[in-house]
Design a protein around this nucleic acid. Structure first.
Lengths: 319, 319
DNA sequence: ACCAGTTATGATATTGATATCAGGTAATAA
DNA sequence: TTATTACCTGATATCAATATCATAACTGGT
């Protein structure tokens, strides 16, 4: 800024004002901006951050472990990220992408933290709390007891929608596939079980499955071995599980849609390409990302932010 | 650090050395680390960055426009990101995620830039060059003429593998689906066309398609209208196109695998879930991300880095 | 000409860590 | 005892921006 100041015949502080939002005579500002342009000037964020005691940066912590249960190729973090970045960019905030491990090993200097993970990593949450960073979490508030701001889909409502659809089709004996150890599937099952029972149906079993096609396939086989043909509906915790289940059902000679209905959760891109196209509950991840970012930024400004449930909707396809 | 220094009975600079990698007596370091721990100290990165004139941060620029041609739900950026972050974390670098627009509007202070985009955004590249940031690009070096360091899959080789497979199956009349305006599909077609011709085959047409299922479906219909049944092979620029093409072929009564073969590119997760499971060329995105990160960091250290082609492999499934 | 009020600019101090240079201590060798 | 080395520690200046306070210039009204 000193160089630009010299070039434009003003002081450095005036340059700062001209390039930032300060009050500077229009003509002077023009001269300064022109000088900055020709000199290829770029703001030194480190200096600004140091002086202003804030970074305009928000850490996005992702569970990046290539775990078999939740492969990294999963589209959902990317959809959330898209929304997050869109919203942060509007307000000239930046997103710093980190794994939980990295965050704990060398906490970055950021103004707030967005945590994307299946359920809560309690150690990570504890550390973030200790840093006194505003924290917004994607997922379910079930196990959090209101301690943090959570943005997530209305999983209970989604389960309810699935139940109503299956009841409407005349189904009365359902099996749930998914890991209740995670808060989101647990919420989905809760909503499902309650509404299904209220409509005269019965959830005859809930079988654990990781979030994969293979997991769903195995869980469905287990169910078939246990119950034979004595069920007419399947509700899966995610689309991958549902697709694995459909495949397993077809392999064992059951006619999906005609005599057994399957509903997934997510409305992943592959759900409509699957054959048969999958009936599922749609989550709006992009909007979820935007809300996460908005709340995080609000909290940086010292405003309060509330836990929010995003509406979901039933997408009827062929299963 | 002043506070810790007081607590530990040393000077601030010694604290810096103890927490960084400086030479400090083991006992003193212990005392300092303990004090830092109990006081919940966290390094101020802004100050360090300012003093050291580097940020240990690398910008990852993504084409985040939710364009119809390349929806954001695409898994490939996530896979690359996974590899990038894994490698950066090891060296205590951070990843700052940005759209190209944001980068150009308010260039961040970073040590290097990784550009993930289908093809080159020339305006973005020009700006990055002006900032004198080390730059590593994911994609094809075809249109870059060696000006930048590029990491990408061996698209030409992948095309060749597809050609050899189709020749082996006795196919001789192939149609290519994909947008040659992008460097990567263009490379794939080049390798394919050359090897297919060398084996006595003929690429009878190359039809433009965006990177979606719908795009592939439409392009395939166009091809069928133009050529009827007078072709026995399809090579698609990506899996989504290939799946759309398979669907179109089946709709028009052609028996995929028996009398027309289809090969995709990517080995996306959905390729093996598709029915029929898709034969395709596998790209190792995770490794690609790691290489991008390694090269970017090497360039920050002032080391040279070379353009690299990652090997691909044929995955034979049912098409 | 004077004043109040606004607007535009400048001087200085400050942010937290660390590079650099200098000083001090302990151990070993002469 | 002194010199030599290796090792540890401290003082100071510095990185590039901006908050704060002070000053200058202008405006319009009396």
């Amino acid at each position: 800024m000193q160089d630009i100041a010299r070039q434009a015949g003003v002081s450095a502080i005036t340059v700062s004002r001209a390039l930032g939002g300060g009050t500077v005579k229009a003509e002077t500002r023009q001269r300064i901006v022109a000088a900055a342009e020709t000199m290829g000037y770029q703001l030194n964020h480190a200096a600004r951050n140091l002086r202003q005691q804030r970074t305009s940066t928000i850490a996005v912590v992702i569970e990046m472990q290539p775990s078999a249960a939740r492969p990294i190729s999963d589209p959902y973090p990317m959809s959330l990220l898209g929304g997050i970045i869109e919203e942060l960019s509007k307000a000239d905030f930046s997103a710093m992408l980190l794994t939980a491990e990295k965050f704990m090993r060398l906490p970055p200097s950021v103004d707030a933290v967005i945590l994307l993970g299946q359920g809560f990593r309690n150690d990570a949450v504890a550390l973030i709390d200790r840093c006194n960073h505003p924290l917004v979490v994607w997922g379910s508030s079930r196990s959090d007891e209101g301690r943090h701001v959570v943005v997530g889909s209305d999983n209970v409502g989604g389960g309810r929608l699935a139940a109503l659809r299956l009841l409407e089709l005349g189904r009365r004996r359902a099996i749930f596939l998914g890991d209740q150890g995670h808060a989101e599937p647990a919420d989905r099952l809760d909503g499902f079980a309650e509404a299904f029972a209220a409509g005269g149906g019965c959830v005859i079993d809930a079988i654990a499955s990781d979030f994969t096609f293979i997991g769903g396939h195995q869980a469905m086989r287990t169910a078939i071995e246990a119950y034979g043909r004595d069920f007419d509906a399947v509700f899966a915790a995610c689309d991958a599980i549902a697709m694995g289940a459909v495949r397993a059902l077809i392999e064992r000679g059951r006619r999906v849609s005609e005599e057994v209905s399957v509903i997934g959760f997510d409305d992943a891109a592959s759900a409509q390409l699957f054959s048969p196209p999958l009936t599922t509950i749609h989550q709006d991840w992009h909007e979820g990302g935007r809300q996460l970012a908005r709340k995080a930024m609000a909290m940086v400004q010292g405003e309060a932010a509330e836990t929010t449930l995003l509406p979901v909707r039933l997408v009827v396809r062929a299963t």
